[in-house]
Design a protein around this nucleic acid. Structure first.
Lengths: 224, 224
DNA sequence: ACATTTATCTCGCTC
DNA sequence: GAGCGAGGTAAATGT
């Protein structure tokens, strides 16, 4: 890894064109050739960058000409860094990183709701999770207290797409005289207002789920 | 900005929990207090990080105890960095960055088309950009030469979902007797064949935009 | 290999 | 501040 503190301007020309006026910045060149241009703020995202695989060509300063780096990738995108002043330029070998270990993934939510259908109504019974249809599985298929079928679409964050998806399932399921009528429920931790509006316009019930509470109920249930 | 090369392990506890085994890494502390942990590969995304606003507390090594950084934000998320060996530790003042200038994104395209509605037809008049509806804003709402309403959906690259999106708007807008009839126009730099087919099947006009030409016209307009 | 879904998304904008 | 859409989305997962 090479770290350069330099006054530079940056131009990217690829999927869009972007320009950075001259300023003091941190340039990171990683072992795979990728280049990151960071300022002293913002967030983890660089001001500009080139992802690997790519190639860095360095044109040293010569006379009045400032130094220039050009980074290109296979798609022909280019990042051009014009360096007018170099404050520092150091390299270090970090070796290969063992990598990140993540915990706490959430396909879990569906499992929890299947166990806690009473959150939707007393007397609701599970038919099955991942109920198969020709256009894909319905997340949860169940019956309400009157025995009528209900298809549940689950999302962590429900947008318009979730409503469209559930609508397609309902349209198909309701063609089957053995199932019809099938009601729809959209269940998610958050539901965008537009999605809610569209869903309710189509007679689909919206339910906001409290993941922590649902997890808590399970904890108590398994503890005693 | 502070740059530290150190052997460290990292633990994040917040929206998820994650752990990084000990290895040599680059730690970046930005002026706003945010912290980035980078390895010598991967991509522009750090292995782990804490976004601003947040607070870094440093606990120096003492005896057998390794050094430890704890970074916390308002939401109670914590990033803990345990440092067993520091290779280098330097600081530099970069000043405030002038920021990125982007070109060629949808917003720019929308702006250009709003100024050049004549590209769609003589006598067309703008009502407003980002015309609000309960299910989201219509990119451009205007009237054609006969005074009839036209809703324009803009994309850089239009696919099926752009057609679906516009269809939803049109369905809703045409319920309003003050607006109806509302025609639809899908305008994009490129339109996928399936999108074009679906759009035309639904009576939606497709228009391919020449970004460079539109930009050029504006340049000429402002030059003379 | 490609398509789909997720993200500690980030970023910018509007209300 | 909340909400929403776009992104050079990037990254992970399923097919």
């Amino acid at each position: 890894m090479r770290l350069v503190i330099a006054r530079c301007s940056v131009d990217y020309d690829g999927r869009l064109t972007a320009h950075l006026p001259s300023a003091l910045r941190l340039l990171i060149v990683k072992a795979d050739g990728s280049v990151l241009v960071h300022s002293d703020g913002g967030s983890y995202k660089p001001l500009n960058w080139m992802s690997p695989p790519c190639r860095l060509t360095e044109h040293p300063a010569a006379g009045d000409e400032p130094g220039k780096w050009t980074v290109t990738n296979k798609a022909g995108e280019t990042l051009t860094i014009t360096i007018t002043e170099t404050v520092s330029d150091t390299s270090v070998d970090l070796g290969i990183d063992p990598g990140l270990v993540k915990d706490g993934v959430e396909a879990h939510l569906q499992e929890l709701l299947a166990e806690q259908l009473h959150l939707l109504g007393d007397g609701w019974r599970l038919i099955r999770r991942e109920y198969p249809t020709p256009i894909g599985p319905v997340d949860i298929m169940c019956r309400d207290d009157s025995g009528a079928h209900v298809a549940i679409e689950m999302k962590r964050h429900a947008g318009i797409d979730a409503v469209e998806q559930l609508t397609r399932y309902l349209e198909l399921l309701n063609r089957d005289p053995l199932l019809s009528p099938v009601q729809g429920v959209l269940a998610a931790q958050t539901i965008k207002l537009q999605a809610r509006t569209l869903a309710e316009d189509r007679g689909i019930r919206c339910v906001v789920l409290d993941y922590d509470a649902m997890r808590g109920i399970v904890r108590e249930g398994t503890l005693f």
